[in-house]
Design a protein around this nucleic acid. Structure first.
Lengths: 108, 108
DNA sequence: TCAAATCATCGTAATATTACGATATTATAA
DNA sequence: TTATAATATCGTAATATTACGATGATTTGA
């Protein structure tokens, strides 16, 4: 299964970012981190209707996509958006949303 | 499982669009439809490294997300982007990408 | 009417995702 | 040193996703 090797590098990269953001919990996490009101794992857990282990798993996925990084602060972990990678994601996604859809020729 | 009922309506809608676009095959399909070079199901199948039934399944998912609509033309089916819904998706996704991330306060 | 073409759907298998509780890990505080 | 707090990881179960071939449905053309 998964013949994704045969898709373009561009489409695979775009899919990676979109997939990382395709779950409401991960969307909520990104919004929280962006607002800078919450930052510690425990705070995020309190906001979401999910268990601690599940939230930790979602954070891991965001980290693996490169969108988020975590730093240990004592016994807590402070999560932040990786600005460089996030800007790259914004660029890639925005480019897909805008650039490819200028020539709307209705065909049906 | 799936306690998504407890997430905000906004996040759920955003997740719906992002999920629909989170597979390289569906990204490629959207690009093809946008470029208006391909439009019939059979043409899309020829471009992708997937079987006809699998492509049909991906098209169904795009239809269920509202992003695409299909019209029967003889023995073929012509697929098009649903402009209204696509613009809505662009708005929702763009808003998420841009509006929520102005106040970058580094906390770690 | 019948065959061919086109696409959707069904059945199914492999894998991925999502979620939880239990446990391991790590750092601080007593 | 030991207990506590915070988080990660493990094990596992339920469900979703992805993919294919086979089959069904529909339309056109012979």
């Amino acid at each position: 299964m998964h013949k994704k090797k045969e898709f373009s590098k561009e489409d695979l990269e775009l899919a990676k970012y979109l997939k990382a953001l395709s779950h409401p919990a991960r969307i909520s996490i990104m919004k929280q981190l962006a607002s800078s009101t919450t930052c510690f794992c425990g705070e995020i857990v309190e906001v979401l209707p999910l268990s601690q282990s599940t939230v930790s798993q979602h954070l891991k996925e965001l980290k693996e996509a490169g969108l988020v990084k975590g730093e240990i602060e004592g016994t807590k972990v402070c999560y932040c958006i990786d600005d460089i990678e996030w800007q790259k994601a914004i660029d890639v996604i925005s480019s897909f949303l805008n650039n490819n859809f200028h020539k709307k020729i209705e065909c049906c």
